[in-house]
Simulated scan of single mutants.
Amino acid sequence: MSRVPMRGFRADQLEAARRAADISQGELAARATAILRQQKGFNPTDQAGPSVSTATVSTWVRGTRSPSPDKLAATAAALDLPMSALIDVPADERTLRTLRELSGRTQPMLATEVGVSSGLLAVLERGHGNLTDDVGRRLAKALGLPVAEVVDAYNRGRVR
């Protein structure tokens, strides 16, 4: 299954931040790869493990591909930026998916942390199924947000 483009991703902000940092796309990719590997428990200097390539950064900037949240989070960290600088979705329009992406997590990452299946999280993000109080509390805790914000985001997903 192909990934749906990240809503609100600001490729122009990514490129502006890279230029302001005065680093090449290759250097940004190398820094993001080191951060990503460290976050995922790999030795940052090993060739094995997840990576952000120069070509990947280039496709994001050109708008031909949308980043995955974990790789974008590592790239934002390499530029010392919050995710909200690269994902622009007004607070009153954010869905569960947007909250997850702003946290820099993929569905499997957040689902594991919350103790639900990736399938259930996907269903909830699409506004199907029922968000139980227990799962709502666990999502809020994992995302570091108030339960009310998570419930509101879920309800916005149901309305679309």
Rank of each mutant, 00 (worst) to 15 (best):
E101W: 07
I23A: 02
Q107L: 14
V116F: 09
T98F: 08
H128G: 15
P90Y: 08
D12N: 00
D46L: 09
R105F: 11
L121S: 05
V159R: 14
T54L: 12
G104Y: 03
S58G: 04
S66Q: 03
R7Q: 14
M83A: 11
F42W: 15
Q47S: 12
R3N: 06
R37Q: 14
M83N: 13
L131W: 01
T95Q: 01
R158D: 03
K141M: 03
V4P: 10
A111H: 04
R105L: 14
L36H: 15
T56F: 01
S2H: 13
E101G: 08
S58D: 03
M1A: 12
L96D: 01
P67R: 00
A34M: 02
S24D: 09
D133P: 11
D133T: 14
A11T: 04
L102G: 08
R62L: 13
L145I: 07
A30S: 09
T33L: 09
T59E: 13
S58V: 03
F9D: 03
E149F: 00
A34K: 01
A78T: 06
V150A: 04
A140H: 08
Q25C: 09
V114N: 00
Q13G: 08
M83H: 11
G136F: 04
G119P: 02
G144S: 04
A29T: 02
G129D: 02
E93C: 10
T112L: 10
V116Y: 10
W60Y: 12
S103A: 15
V147T: 05
L96Y: 02
R137M: 08
V151P: 07
L102V: 10
V116C: 14
T95I: 01
A16K: 14
T98V: 15
L121N: 04
V4H: 07
P44M: 05
Q47T: 12
Q107R: 15
S53Y: 06
I23C: 01
M83S: 11
G144V: 01
P108F: 05
P146M: 01
L124A: 06
N43D: 12
K40R: 15
R160K: 15
G104W: 04
A122M: 08
A74E: 05
L139M: 07
S68A: 14
T54I: 06
L79M: 10
T45S: 14
R10G: 05
L131P: 04
A111V: 09
A85C: 11
M6F: 05
Q13I: 00
F9M: 07
I87R: 05
M1K: 10
E93V: 08
V116N: 10
S51V: 05
Y154L: 02
T56D: 00
T98S: 12
T98C: 13
D46T: 10
D12Y: 03
F42I: 08
L81F: 13
A21S: 06
R126N: 13
V123T: 03
A17S: 06
I35G: 09
W60P: 02
V135R: 03
A55Q: 13
I23V: 05
S84E: 13
V159W: 07
N155Q: 13
E113Q: 14
H128T: 08
R19I: 15
D152E: 02
Q39T: 11
T98A: 12
E15N: 06
G63D: 05
L28N: 04
A16Q: 13
A16D: 12
P69L: 03
L36W: 11
